[in-house]
Each structure stands twice: as C-alpha cells, then as structure tokens.
Write a protein that binds this DNA or RNA. Structure first.
Length: 257
DNA sequence: ATGTTACCCGAAACAGAATG
DNA sequence: CATTCTGTTTCGGGTAACAT
C-alpha cells in the first residue's frame, strides 16, 4: 500500500495519523479471502514525524493492530535497498544528524500459526567462507557462545538458508515496462518493487498453481513474478493509467485501452 | 490562514556498452 | 572472456518565496 510519507507521491499517500484506520478494512477483506494456511505479506516503509527528526511508529502500530485478532506475525523481514538516496535530506545531508534510511519492514502475517512455507524454495549460494568450511571440514564441538555444533554442520545441502534481511537494489532503468511506458506516453509508476522482492515471498510461501493476490498492484510486478513462477494471480489497482502501463509487462504492446 | 512551487542536499548499485 | 566506462535509477524531507 502507499506509505505514510510526508512528501506525497503522485498516487496520493495517507497520513501516519489515521493510517491504521485506513488500512484495517483492507486487512479484514484480505483475511476473508485468505486460505487458512495462506500468508499476508505487507511491505511498509518507515516515515518521520512531521517537522522533527524523530521516527513515526506507524508501521509498528499497524503490526500491533493486525496481530490483535486478525493475524499471527509469522516473521518480520527487512528489505535493505543499498541504492537508496541519502535521505531525508534535511536530517541526513543538510543538518547531518541522522543517517540514511535504507530498510523497509516487510511483515509476514498468517491466518494460522502454521502457514505453508518452505525455505528450501529460496536457498541461496553458500558464501565463500562456508564453501571453504565445507571443503576443509569442520571440527564438531561446543562453541564459546554455547552453540552445540555437530558433525552434521559440514554436510553440504542444496544451498544456504537465507536470512530475514533481503538485500535487493532497486535500480532498474531500462526494462521493457519503462521503455514501453515512455514510448506510449504513460506515467511510469513511481514506486515499483524490484523483481526479487515479491519473487522471494511467492517462492517461499506458495506453490505452483496456487493463487497470489496483490490489492495494491501499481505496475503489477507481483503479477509478472507470479506468472513466471506459474502461480495464478489476481491484482487490483486504483489507477487505470498504471494498470494500462502494467500490460507492457506481458508483451502486450498494443495501445492499452 | 492555507496551498503551491522551487530550491537545497547527496550515495550506491547495476545493466549494457565499450574496451582490452 | 574480463574489465572498465557510461548512463540511469532510487516509495524525501524542511524551508523560503509566492499565490490564493
């Protein structure tokens, strides 16, 4: 959904005060259509209290409200976008009393305590040092921190289990969607997901043939990802112009209706 | 009193082209 | 094929000046 930014984007943002009240009706409907073992993933960027260099707690208020009686919090993730600009400028680059804000919280909610999930679908390559460790062997013993590390630790699996910090740069500049929008004179959506973000959660939390819903679709990266991963998908978007542009993600180069 | 616009400030990543 | 270069992108904030 749109974040509670002080500087509004062209699609219009909601203020931090009242954000929970605004979001709750959507959350209720999402719960209604969600399978019992389904997941609800919510990407919420942070924001600042107007006029002062202190942080709003609105995204935590959202999490508290949603876990009161609608959802369980399965896990929280952080999307780290290393290519974020050093902003907000007033506090970060002018007065230099804060550092740049480069993570979004991504809340993973579920209807029951055991949503369908499998981290073997999102394994990553082993790090260089883990590769060395697997090559040279590993001495099983109790570590100083108290961890009991067994021989099993030197077994090579299919890959490394990812952390809940997702490092995904958002720098795409010349994709099919952007080029086609420019040619057609349609506005490029000003806040798109990098492909890898929805990809991670669709892989992790759904299986082929299952259905993904994005009710704040924007330029429909989620739909494109779901299509590629052979999931069924349904998206909603308020702006017909963004929806028209999103058709370019599917090779539909005809002038959108 | 309230809304609008211009201005200011700056770091890193990455795709794709060019070069070695 | 590996490296280097080029162009483009990124869910901002306050403030001053001006308009309604």
């Amino acid at each position: 959904p749109p974040f509670a930014l002080n500087r509004k984007k062209e699609y219009g943002n909601v203020n931090a005060a009242g954000y929970v009240e605004w979001l709750m009706p959507f959350a209720g409907e999402i719960r209604r259509v969600l399978r019992d073992d389904g997941s609800f993933v919510l990407d919420l960027g942070g924001t600042w209290n107007k006029g002062v260099p202190t942080r709003s707690l609105y995204h935590y208020e959202v999490a508290l409200a949603l876990t009161r009686n609608l959802f369980h919090l399965a896990q929280e993730f952080y999307w780290y976008n290393p290519s974020k600009l050093p902003s907000p400028a007033e506090w970060v680059t002018v007065r230099r009393i804060r550092v740049k804000d480069a993570v979004n919280t991504v809340w993973w909610f579920s209807k029951t305590e055991h949503p369908d999930a499998d981290n073997r679908r999102v394994l990553t390559a082993y790090s260089e040092s883990m590769e060395k460790l697997l090559e040279n062997g590993y001495k099983a013993k109790q570590r100083p921190s108290g961890w009991d590390i067994s021989e099993n630790f030197s077994r090579r699996h299919e890959g490394a289990i990812p952390p809940n910090l997702l490092r995904i740069a958002n720098t795409e500049s010349n994709g099919q969607y952007q080029r086609a929008c420019r040619e057609a004179g349609l506005k490029v959506h000003p806040a798109r997901f990098p492909y890898g973000l929805p990809e991670f959660f669709v892989r992790f939390l759904t299986r082929p043939g299952e259905t993904v819903l994005d009710c704040f679709a924007g330029s429909n990266v989620t739909g494109r990802v779901s299509e590629d991963l052979e999931r069924r998908w349904i998206v909603c978007e308020l702006s017909e112009e963004y929806l028209a542009g999103s058709r370019f993600r599917f090779g539909d180069m005809a002038a959108p209706a």
